[in-house]
């Protein structure tokens, strides 16, 4: 409640989290969505007891993260994207056993649990391979096994699929889902800047930007924010910048653009179909040529653009 974190250096003061109020229910897969630098990782670091808040309080599984952190730690676990923790000279099974000991697990049950999870994630064949010889996908699956093997009450996943190929990311998501199904009281808090990942996985989502929660709700309810808008994908061949002019067109609720294969792909939220005429006129006046135009269903990305005013990539660039 009222969670805040300010970093002070000699030259500046940075507010990474600003009065965040959040309630995550037991058994929920909760997504924290936002661009890089939005405050997601700071929030997670506070919740996993690595960082103290400068204001407010937070409880995880009933324990205060500041005063009861020693009692909380056995009940949580974290898996981060691009994680290289551990020692490359160890074999997969050895490394996992080592971490299990830091949680006080008896060696026998720990080894059995490790083997079971390695099997489920398709890593049984590399259980005796040195970690230094693993691909990044295998390594991240091994990290997930580390996170799951202690059966935490709350599992934190910090950008767990970043830089993974599609197959490895899918396997990870599937395993997280399966792990939660085994025990409906298990809770997962996921940070990501992949909208689709959040949409597919999460029961509820909080969109974070500039250290504040912009909105919180189910993926469905967030998309409903833009349900009444007309969502249009407009593809233009290269030319003069047009984003700001399109945003100024009356009836355009929000606009964002990304470049792909030499084509500028605009996403426009329009109040109604009639606005499209003004949009096309603006494009024609700029001298740019239309390469494609299509209406589509709203996504979380559209909700983000509408709520924040800019796309996630624009926020990151900013």
């Amino acid at each position: 409640m009222g969670l805040g974190r300010v970093y002070k250096t000699r030259s500046e003061t940075v507010t990474a989290l600003d009065s965040v109020d959040l309630k995550i229910r037991e058994g929920e897969l909760f997504g924290v969505l936002g661009p890089n630098g939005a405050g997601k990782t700071t929030l997670i670091k506070i919740l996993v007891t690595l960082l103290l808040p400068t204001s407010g309080t937070a409880r995880v599984d009933g324990f205060d993260v500041v005063t009861e952190y020693r009692r909380l730690r056995p009940r949580i676990s974290i898996v981060s994207g691009g994680e290289n923790a551990g020692y490359g000279i160890l074999k997969v099974r050895e490394q996992l056993w080592m971490f299990s000991q830091f949680y006080g697990m008896p060696s026998g049950p720990a080894r059995a649990r490790i083997d079971e999870l390695l099997e489920r994630l398709g890593l049984a064949d590399v259980a005796n391979r040195q970690i230094s010889g693993l691909s990044s996908g295998m390594r991240q699956k091994m990290n997930l096994v580390r996170g799951l093997m202690t059966d935490p009450r709350v599992l934190f996943l910090d950008e767990p699929t970043v830089a993974l190929d599609v197959g490895a990311a899918r396997d990870l998501r599937q395993e997280v889902g399966r792990w939660m199904e085994e025990d409906p009281t298990r809770t997962v808090i996921l940070t990501t800047h992949y909208m689709q990942e959040a949409d597919d996985l999460c029961d509820r989502i909080a969109i974070v930007n500039k250290g504040r929660i912009v909105i919180e709700g189910t993926p469905h309810s967030l998309k409903a924010e833009v349900q009444r808008d007309v969502v249009v994908d407009l593809q233009l061949e290269p030319g003069t910048p047009l984003l700001d002019r399109l945003r100024e067109v009356e009836g355009v609720g929000a606009a964002s653009v990304r470049e792909e294969d030499g084509i500028d792909r605009f996403s426009l939220l329009l109040v109604d179909d009639g606005v499209l005429t003004n949009v096309i006129s603006t494009v024609e006046r700029s001298g740019r040529r239309v390469a494609g135009l299509a209406k589509r269903q709203p996504t979380l990305e559209d909700a983000f653009v509408k709520l924040v005013g800019r796309s996630m990539s624009e926020e990151e660039a900013n």
Partner: peptide, 18 residues
Amino acid sequence: DNGTLELYAISPTTFEGV
């Protein structure tokens, strides 16, 4: 630098033991 220290820190064990 490789993230291991964070994992030690959030585990129930102590730095002294490590």
